[in-house]
Design a protein around this nucleic acid. Structure first.
Lengths: 235, 235
DNA sequence: TGTACATCAGTGAACGCGCGTTCACTGATGTAC
DNA sequence: TGTACATCAGTGAACGCGCGTTCACTGATGTAC
C-alpha cells in the first residue's frame, strides 16, 4: 500500500517510507509532501505533547485526540504527520537515542589503572544522565522493542551498538594483554556489562528509593564494570 | 464493589480480593465462591489458552473472546474466574515465578575457588532454563512490571528477591574476607549482577542468533558473575 | 436404588461505548506579474 | 505595490467497527433421604 508511489523509482520527491524521515533526512507528511516551516512547528508541538503524555500514561493509553487537543489541533492534523501514536514515539526515540555515540566515546581510550576506573564512573554517570533526560521515551522504546517491534529494536540497537562495540574492544584488548581468560567471549561480555548500564539507567531511581545512595550505585557499578572489562582486581 | 461481602468481617468464606487466590490459597471465582473440581479444570484450560496466545501475540492483542473460544467456552465463563486478561496473566506469572527459590539455593553455599565458578555456571544455566520454560509469561511479567503495574512488580520482586539477597550476602562475605573493597555496596552490586542474569535469561536467544554460542554465553556470564561477587581474579 | 431438590457451572445474544479514522471543506501563506 | 491564483495547513463532524461486559437463562452435577 504505502510503497506504491516509490515503485517507479525515478520520482525525485522525498517519500515517507513509514518512518518520519525520508532517506535524505527531509521531513515529509503522510502523503510524501515536504513540510514547510509552519508544518514543522505543528509536528514538533505534537511530538512534545506526545512525550508529555508518556510521562504519566502507558503507551496504549495515549489517544490521538488527546495529543491533538493538547496543542489545539484537530485529530486529523495528527494524521498528516504520523501514521499512529507509535510512529510519533518512534520519532522521539530516534531523537533521544541519537545522543548515545557521545557517551560511547568514553570507551575509545584504553581503560587502564585509576584513569580507567574514572572512565567507568563517567560512563555509568553518563548513562544515568541520559536516562534521566529521556526516561519516559527510553522506557517505552525498550518496552516496545522487547515486545518484538522491529522498528524500535532497530533504534535501540543503533543506540547501544557503539557502547557494546566499545566494551567488546576493551575486553579483547584485556585478553590480548593476558588479564582476561580466552574462555570469555568479548561480545557476550559486552552484552552482560551493557545490561548493567541499561539496568542502572532504567532502575536507579527504584534502587535509590530502596535505600541505596545514588553515589554508591555509580561507584559500585563502575567498579564491577571496570573489573569485568579490564580483568584488573582493584585491591 | 467487590469487598461488600467481606465487610461484615465474620464470614468464613474464602474471598477473592482481586487476586486469583484467597489468602489461604483456596481458589475462588469473581463472586467469592470456592471452585469445584469442574470449575478448576475450566479455569486451568483458560489459563493454558491464555499462555498459548501469549507466545504469538502482544498482551494488548489478547481478547477474552478468543481465549474463551479456544477452550469452547463463552466469554462469560472467562469472567467468572478472572477480572480481565491481565489477571489471568498475573496468575500465570505467579506460578512461573514460584520456581525461583530453588534456583536461589545455588547461592546458599559460599562461592569459593573452582567449585564457586561451578555454582556460577549452574546459576546462569538455571536462569536460562527457567526463562526458556516460561519465556512468554516472564517476558510479559517484566514488561507490565516495567510499565509500573504494582501487582506484576510484586510478583517479579518476590521472584528475584531470594536471588538478590543471596548475591548480596555473597558479596558481603567477600568484603569481610577482604577480596572486595568496602567502597562497593552489596545491594547495588546484587542489582547489577542480577541484571546480568535477567538479561541472559531474556535475551540469550537473540545473542545466540547474533553468532555467540550458548555455551560461551553461559561461560562468560558465569565468569563475570563470579569475579564480581567473589573478587577473585580467575587468572 | 431412586427421586427431588440445591447448587454449581456455563451459555449466547446483545447492548453500548469509546476510539480511530476519514472526507469534503475552509482558512492561511506564498508567489508571479 | 497590488491583485490573482496556487499550494500549504488544518478543520470538525461523523461514521463505523470491534470489543468488553452483562444478564436472564439453561444444563450439569452433587446430595439427602
Amino acid at each position: 500500500m504505502r510503497e506504491t508511489e516509490a515503485r517507479d523509482g525515478v520520482s525525485e520527491k522525498p517519500v515517507n517510507l513509514g518512518s518520519a524521515t525520508s532517506p535524505d533526512g527531509v521531513l515529509v507528511d503522510q502523503g510524501g509532501r515536504v513540510l514547510g516551516p509552519r508544518a514543522l512547528g505543528t509536528r514538533q508541538k505534537l511530538l512534545d505533547a506526545t512525550r508529555d503524555r508518556l510521562d504519566s500514561h502507558r503507551l496504549r493509553e495515549i489517544r490521538v485526540i488527546d495529543v491533538a487537543r493538547a496543542v489545539d489541533a484537530s485529530p486529523a492534523a495528527f494524521y498528516q504527520y504520523f501514521k499512529d501514536i507509535e510512529e510519533a514515539v518512534l520519532a522521539l526515540a530516534e531523537a533521544a537515542s541519537s545522543e548515545m555515540p557521545v557517551v560511547a566515546e568514553l570507551l575509545e581510550q584504553p581503560w587502564l589503572g585509576n584513569a580507567g576506573l574514572g572512565c567507568a564512573r563517567k560512563l555509568v554517570s553518563a548513562f544515568i544522565d541520559h536516562w534521566d533526560h529521556h526516561h519516559a521515551v527510553l522506557r517505552v522504546r525498550n518496552l516496545v522493542s522487547d515486545e518484538g517491534d522491529a522498528r524500535f529494536r532497530a533504534v535501540r540497537g543503533r543506540a547501544m551498538s557503539p557502547v557494546l562495540l566499545g566494551l567488546a574492544r576493551q575486553i579483547e584488548a584485556s585478553q590480548a594483554a593476558g588479564r582476561i581468560s580466552q574462555d570469555e567471549d568479548p561480545r557476550a561480555a559486552a552484552a552482560a556489562t551493557g545490561a548493567i548500564l541499561e539496568r542502572m539507567g532504567a532502575y536507579h531511581r527504584d534502587l535509590a528509593q530502596g535505600g541505596v545512595a545514588q553515589e554508591q550505585l555509580i561507584e559500585t557499578s563502575a567498579r564491577i564494570l571496570f573489573r569485568s572489562v579490564t580483568g584488573e582486581s582493584l585491591l
